[in-house]
Amino acid sequence: MNIYLHELNGHRKSTVLWTATLVLVVIVFMSIYPAFSKDVTAFKSILEGFPESVRNAIGLEVNQFFSLLGFYSYLFLYIKLLGAIQAMNLGIGIISKEVRDKTADFLLTKPVSRVTILVAKMMAALTCIVLTNVIFLLLTYLIMSYTSTEPFSSKTLFMLSLTLFLLQLLFLSLGFMIAVIVQKIKAVLPISLGVVFMFFLLNLFGSATGDNLLRYLTPFQYVEPMYILRNNSYEPDFLLAGLIVLIVSIVVSYVVYTKKDIPSV
């Protein structure tokens, strides 16, 4: 419990900052929505001029784009990107911290098992992500209600927003795994940015081509807003894929972390 609280305390500031950033993105985007919806027809003709692959790549379909939730799911691409960076950064950072700051000799010579340490850190990270999502969801709902001129489905909004949490879970667990496998991580941000952008690029390709195999390669594609918007449900195959990624990365993190040699300072 003491490790959990210590870690939670250490990540308080960054969690607040990330949550604020995510909400700010929603505010900025939604503030231009009223102006957007006024000129529906003019926009429609411009957008239809774009080649289809481009339209697919940026995740919008003309008709849905102008509904409130359609617009939201478009901006959600950027929320997902930011959320992924937050989760990956947190996942790598919280596990590699001891080795990075050379405090491993302190923490790992205390009367606690490595499993306890790992679980405490994972739980602290999970708490940060849950808090981020709860606050994000609440504030987003308020913003949407304020912006909307017509009724919208709160269930769909909830389902769309929940994908942030699912995606963050995946990136968090991938972050854990990277942190235990890479021997010495000097700086967290370059690695997390690198990995997230790699998956993000794959995501853009996946959207553009619609290739299913490619879609399995990037967690970004596991939760597709357009599918949710159309079907009001998640894609079961991809949920399963996500679950597998989650389990594999947690198990690998556990096995490697409990066996690993801590490099001397």
């Binding site: 700051d101 050379k102 405090t103 000799d105 302190f106 010579t109 205390k110 009367p111 606690v112």
Partner: peptide, 13 residues
């Protein structure tokens, strides 16, 4: 480790 006190050559906190 309950009953061990350890002091490394270089300390980092």
């Amino acid at each position: 480790k309950k009953d061990i006190g350890y002091l490394p050559s270089e300390v980092f906190y």
